[in-house]
Design a binder for these strands. Structure first.
Lengths: 389, 389
DNA sequence: ATTCTTTGTTCATTCAATAGACAAACTATG
DNA sequence: CATAGTTTGTCTATTGAATGAACAAAGAAT
């Protein structure tokens, strides 16, 4: 609520740590100048950070005409974080250091069915990652889970249509099992955060991440922070109406964006192409992408999806005026075919002012966006926690 | 950048002032308990606020079993703020005290034409309000202007289609004239802020204000703050595509929301009703509303507009997961006819989770939303400025 | 009349940042 | 190579904002 000296100290210590983390190796003098603190203050804060094993001194740096500086680096191995991407037909777990480097990973290609079954898969992955983690001062500092569904702020999954789940107390189940800080996040939010921290969105403050998979979800980074909405359900833009009286959607509405621009829509259209070869096994996105070259029907299907993606993105841009749009999740694999028609829609339709200084890119972290996002979120929570006291 | 004792003091003083402003009359002891500060700290901060004329002691309050408290009240007359709503066919100016009460107002019903002409109207209104303002310690503390167009963060109007303006340096022109802090804000943002401070949105943290007039603009209050987008152009949702290959829009796109749900759309449809009575003078919203009763063609036109408004609002809700939607500006006058169909669309189409704990209302401040919003914004800037040092 | 509560002030204490002095370590220069 | 100038990092006295405890004033309760 109110402010006092202790809060000042914690905030300044956190700023010093962030500076070392982002710009290290860096000297005390440089930190002081950048943050506008005195050298003495920085010295004492750094000493506490060193004592807490959050950073350490490395060799001396280059002199710039005087005494050589002692360089400080962030101790990325002070602990390890776990991120899980719970997909519809896979579970991907990563163990990362505090800088977000993947140290270990495990992927299970399983179709999610019952919650109990899936929970046990997840626990196995987590136990595997924990038991193979390197020794460290803080050990495992937290676990983040990205989930394709509607998650409230308490960490319950209210609804995950593509998993067929409802009302799942995932956070408390995992807290009970692991006695560690647990973060449950919508998969699009997780992806947005991942790309913001490590991927295409590194240098941007206002970006929108579009998770185009079986369905479409959207994650918002506004003013450098994830925006979750009043109850935590923001970003369900797959159900934005882009065609009044359009196709009927399972959600009860009509003309929803994801009926036109999702992987599911693409696969259904591909099936109805009925080239005689309607073997359902071939109807996988990977297969379609491989075979689009030279197949005009298929490639124009991708172009159509790109067009429809562009329509929704037009709406997003006019709404948010973001600096950057990142297209991620499985459909991003079709970049080669979709990028041109997508950008054409924006150029033709979107308000000109919004197009200046706007970047539209595809995700850089491929399948790791969401897992790295939640892992990094857990790390950030840890670095802003009581360890600074 | 970094933190120190002075910042702590300013923040605490600001908190004390806000507490007095929102909850006054209140005692020093109550403030201390609420903010978690000691009585001594509050005492000394309050004394400085009294010295700065920002609050004063009023009579003693009721005893709760001991010494009677000295009650403090915010000095709403320490200065006055000016808010201007620049409409397409009117200019409304208000002078408010620091609590947002309207002390004086002046409305000009003029059709905006050239910038120079309009600027001179505005200056006249401002001079009128300034010269008739009561004596006060700080005098006029700032001027806010709400503009129906795209405004950048520097206070230039980049584009105001309904005024026919481009690249107008409004802020610097006014600063030069009045030597006062000037705030230029998009009209929808201004309205959102007004309703948040004084109207339907008082107790909400995440709300969306829909300014449905000739065009449609939208203002976002997210986490209690106005969100403006990367460059300040957020909320241009009138150009959200809700019908692929729909009607052509002047913006270059097709199927834009405001082609279906704005006042302009309604008027055009009404004109094409051609009941023989196509006198253009009658084609004013006020006239249509008055005559809708008993006129089925007209009333169903309003219902249709309500339906289309609902479609866009559905998209907004699924996107933002707000606590509240406020429909404002001129179309809000048609509440009687539009509310039911509008809410029906939401009930039928919007994801059920988002509907819980969601309120959809019409603006409470009627034509004053925007003017009060910018005036209040100027006030807030003043109360968080150097006067606290 | 006495005791207990509550309010608001005062003052010594605490603690984080600051400013400035200083030693150590390095560069540049004649 | 000796000297002067720079840069780094530490140390110490000082500043200033919040704290906590004591206390007087004012009222309630008995």
């Amino acid at each position: 609520m109110s402010w006092n000296q202790q809060i000042v100290k914690v905030n300044n210590k956190s700023l010093v740590l962030q500076t070392i983390k982002n710009q290290g190796p860096i000297s005390r003098a440089d930190i002081a100048q950048q943050l506008g603190l005195t050298k003495g203050t920085v010295s004492s804060l750094v000493n506490e950070l060193i004592e807490a094993k959050l950073c350490y001194e490395t060799g001396p740096g280059e002199s710039s005409g005087g005494r050589r500086p002692v360089l400080l680096v962030f101790n990325k191995a002070a602990g390890y974080s776990i991120g899980i991407d719970l997909g519809v037909n896979y579970i991907l777990g990563v163990l990362t250091d505090l800088d977000g480097n993947i140290i270990n990973e495990k992927k299970l290609n399983v179709n999610v069915e019952t919650y109990d079954q899936t929970l046990s898969y997840m626990k196995n992955i987590i136990y595997f990652l924990i038991s193979n983690a390197p020794e460290s001062h803080y050990g495992i500092i937290g676990i983040g889970i990205g989930v394709p569904g509607i998650v409230n702020k308490e960490g319950d999954i209210l609804l995950a249509p593509n998993l067929g789940w409802k009302q799942i107390p995932l956070k408390s189940d995992l807290e009970e099992e692991f006695q560690l800080p647990i973060i449950i996040e919508n998969e699009a939010n997780a992806g947005a955060y991942g790309e913001k921290c490590f991927g295409a969105g590194k240098d941007f403050e206002d970006l929108i991440y579009i998770s185009a998979g079986i369905g479409i979800g959207v994650g918002f980074i506004l003013n450098n922070e994830l925006y979750r909405g009043a109850q935590g359900f923001s970003g369900e833009m797959g159900h934005m109406i882009i065609e009044i009286n359009g196709k009927e959607c399972k959600c009860g509405s009509k003309g929803c964006w994801e009926l036109y621009a999702s992987e599911k829509a693409l696969l259904e259209d591909a099936a109805s192409l009925s080239t005689g070869d309607t073997d359902v096994n071939h109807l996988e996105l990977e297969y379609l992408i491989e075979n689009a070259e030279g197949n005009e029907k298929l490639s124009s299907l991708f172009e159509q999806t790109g067009y429809y993606l562009g329509v929704g993105i037009n709406n997003i841009i006019n709404t948010f005026n973001p600096e950057q749009i990142i297209i991620g999740n499985r459909l991003a694999m079709g970049k080669e075919w979709m990028e041109a028609p997508l950008k054409q829609v924006i150029e033709d339709y979107t308000l000109k002012q919004h197009q200046r200084e706007l970047q539209i890119t595809f995700a850089k972290l491929s399948i790791y966006s969401a897992a790295l996002g939640v892992s990094s979120y857990a790390t950030e929570n840890f670095l802003k926690s009581d360890i600074l006291n």
